[in-house]
Simulated scan of single mutants.
Amino acid sequence: MKVKKLITAEQSRFSAQLFSIASVTATLIPPLLMIWIAASIFVYASIAHHPNPRTAEYNRFSGYRFYGAAGSMMVFGQPIYVLFGNWHGLVAIWAILAIVVVPWGVWSIYKAGHEQWQDMTIEVDTNE
């Protein structure tokens, strides 16, 4: 049996902003960063197949930014850490991640917040 389900404009907008909001928050609060790296996989996957293509697009580009920056730090983090040494190297790695994720993430949140979102109705198959 198929049931119609309403996805409001606010739900689509929030879903489009969610990955960026969490990435910016986790980047600005370093203890949350490791937790967010694990949890982000589930958030990304849950939004990746959103029925609204704009929501999925915002999610995709937020993932590119965060995972690209975090992955780059896996490759270049060790040389940067050795170059600066001690905790200065950790701060340098965190600063590079923050420079990439925070400004573009805030811009993405702002842009999604000012976009015109529409309510949409989808049909959901309920197997009883």
Score class of each variant (00 low, 15 high):
Gly89Glu: 15
Ala26Lys: 06
Ala9Cys: 07
Ile29Ser: 14
Thr25Gln: 10
Glu57Pro: 08
Gly68Asn: 09
Ile47His: 11
Gln17Trp: 01
His114Gln: 13
His88Lys: 15
Val43His: 05
Val24Asn: 10
Val3Asp: 10
Val106Ile: 11
Gln17Lys: 10
Glu115Met: 14
Ile35Glu: 04
Val102Cys: 04
Arg54His: 14
Ile99His: 03
Gln11Gly: 09
Gln11Phe: 04
Phe61Glu: 14
Ile35Val: 08
Tyr67Gln: 09
Gly105Asp: 07
Gly68His: 05
Ala69Val: 01
Ser12Leu: 03
Phe66Ser: 06
Ile109Lys: 06
Arg13Gln: 13
Asn127Gly: 10
Ala39Tyr: 08
Thr25Tyr: 05
Pro53Phe: 01
Glu57Phe: 13
Ala92Asn: 12
Glu115Ser: 15
Val106Glu: 04
Ile21Val: 09
Ile109His: 01
Val3Pro: 02
Ile7Thr: 02
Met74Gly: 14
Tyr81Asp: 14
Ala9Asn: 11
His50Pro: 14
Ala56Gln: 09
Gly113Phe: 02
Ala92Trp: 06
Ala98Gly: 11
Glu10Cys: 00
Ala45Glu: 02
Ala92His: 11
Leu32Val: 00
Gly77Tyr: 02
Leu28Trp: 01
Tyr44Pro: 05
Trp87Cys: 04
Pro53Glu: 07
Pro103Met: 07
Leu6Lys: 15
Asp119Trp: 02
Tyr58Phe: 14
Asn59Asp: 09
Pro103Asn: 11
Trp104Asn: 11
Gln116Val: 08
Ala16Trp: 02
Ser46Pro: 00
Ile29Asn: 12
Tyr110Asn: 13
Gly89Asn: 15
Ile41Arg: 12
Val100Phe: 06
Ala112Thr: 05
Met73Leu: 12
Ala95Ile: 02
His88Tyr: 08
Val100Leu: 10
His88Trp: 09
Asn52Phe: 05
Thr55Ala: 14
Ala38Ser: 12
Ser20Gly: 04
Ile41Cys: 11
Ile21Asp: 01
Ser108Leu: 08
Trp36Glu: 07
Tyr110Phe: 11
Met1His: 11
Ala48Ser: 14
Ala69Phe: 02
Ser40Met: 08
His50Asp: 15
Ser46His: 09
Thr27Cys: 04
Ser20Leu: 00
Glu57Cys: 13
Gly89Trp: 10
Tyr58Arg: 09
Gly85His: 13
Leu28Lys: 05
Ala112Val: 03
Ile122Cys: 10
Val24Trp: 03
Met74Pro: 03
Phe84Val: 08
Ile99Met: 15
Phe61Gly: 01
Ser23Leu: 06
Gln116Lys: 15
Arg60Val: 00
Leu32Asp: 09
Met74Ala: 15
Ala95Phe: 07
Asn127Val: 04
Ser62Gly: 14
Tyr81Ser: 15
Ala48Gly: 03
Phe76Lys: 07
Asp125Tyr: 08
Met120Lys: 13
Thr121Ala: 08
Val82Trp: 04
Ser108Met: 07
